[in-house]
């Protein structure tokens, strides 16, 4: 096994043969591109990219072979990789929901249309990719450029994650990420919810072009089933995320336990992703709101079925750091702040 350090040392010893202004072609990743992809990551990020995988060609090939990573690359005639974008399996429990959020261009080709051609090629392939049912991206709200570009490629904002740490400038305060969703293939599903978010949900579902049967549950309803919650900790972002698959009679105590875990781990944000295909998790929304959680929106297909996002922040988000590109994104922010303000 190659280590990150070995891989980076090897990449550092290879001369960069990319010359500017040459013709390029965009195509599917081939196993022989792995070395070029690793070289591109090294050229663009030096040794600072947080994930080891992209520095190690064998790992890139393995991830692609397993369908964990689906890249499109831009190559020069000599085979050098000058641009890279990919869908990747990230944190959603549903493997058919892939994340889109990587786009690299060699510095010699910045200011060119390479990224446009990469993104266009990826979007043109979506329908034909086996197992890919939906795609989402998280646009950091420092600027509106990413949001706008995403919307131009058919993504629709469905949720706003508040208070994510901006890694570039620690201490600069906490902004937000706009969750943008693009459907690939879907069918009518049941979306359980409580009265407090009914109006917002109708708008989000319509905006994302989804066919949903909105089923109202009484906040007092609970499943007799087991409580099943899986937590994920993101230390660098200061976030604890709880995937709430089902809630039984012990729901209140279990949810309190999760929140205590978040603060004990030093997190600033506690996120609850509630599986809306079941009445139990959706019925917990009023309970969470009384406990100071805000309704962040809908993450379609998170569990295969959709997730309702509820979030609680130790410190209020700084709205002036949140730049949004559209009226509907502004409405999401208003919704997230308004409901969060009930604490």
């Amino acid at each position: 096994m190659t280590t990150r350090a070995e891989a980076i040392a090897r990449l550092g010893s290879c001369p960069d043969t990319v010359r500017p202004g040459l013709a390029y072609a965009v195509g599917d990743f081939a196993p022989d591109d792995a070395e070029g992809v690793a070289a591109l990551f090294h050229t663009v990020y030096g040794d600072t990219y947080p994930l080891d995988a992209y520095y190690i060609p064998e790992t890139i090939r393995r991830l692609c072979g397993q369908g964990e990573l689906i890249p499109v690359v831009a190559r020069l005639e000599g085979g050098e990789v000058i641009g890279f974008t990919a869908l990747y399996k990230a944190s959603p429990p549903f493997p058919g929901l892939m994340e889109f959020g990587l786009g690299l261009v060699h510095p010699a080709y910045r200011g060119s249309f390479v990224l446009f051609h990469l993104f266009s090629a990826m979007m043109a392939r979506l329908e034909a990719l086996p197992g890919v049912e939906a795609v989402f991206g998280e646009a950091v709200c420092d600027t509106i450029i990413t949001q706008h570009a995403s919307s131009l490629f058919g993504f629709h904002e469905t949720a706003l994650e508040l208070g994510l740490m901006r890694e570039k400038e620690p201490g600069a305060g906490r902004g937000a990420c706009l969750v943008m969703f693009r459907n690939v293939r879907d069918r009518r599903r049941v979306l359980h919810h409580t009265a407090c978010c009914a109006g917002h949900l109708g708008r989000l579902v319509a905006g994302a072009g989804l066919d949903r049967e909105l089923v109202l549950v009484d906040g007092g309803d609970t499943d007799a089933g087991p409580t099943r919650i899986a937590t994920q900790l993101f230390p660098s972002a200061g976030v604890l995320r709880a995937n709430v698959f089902s809630l039984g009679k012990d729901r209140e105590a279990e949810l309190v336990k999760i929140e205590q875990q978040a603060w004990a781990e030093g997190c600033q944000v506690c996120q609850m992703y509630l599986d809306a295909s079941l009445p139990g998790p959706a019925a917990a929304v009023p309970l969470l709101r009384r406990a100071g959680y805000g309704f962040g929106g809908l993450i379609p297909r998170w569990f295969d079925s959709d997730a309702l996002l509820l979030q609680k922040l130790l410190d209020p988000p700084r709205a002036e750091l949140i730049n949004l590109y559209s009226a509907s994104a502004e409405a999401l922010l208003a919704m997230a702040l308004e409901s969060g303000g009930e604490a």
Binding site: G111, L115, A149
Partner: peptide, 15 residues
């Protein structure tokens, strides 16, 4: 490119 228009902006321009 020399005036602060990055790849993402050019991408959005193309769309």
């Amino acid at each position: 490119a020399a005036q602060g228009v990055d790849s993402l902006a050019i991408t959005a321009m193309a769309v």
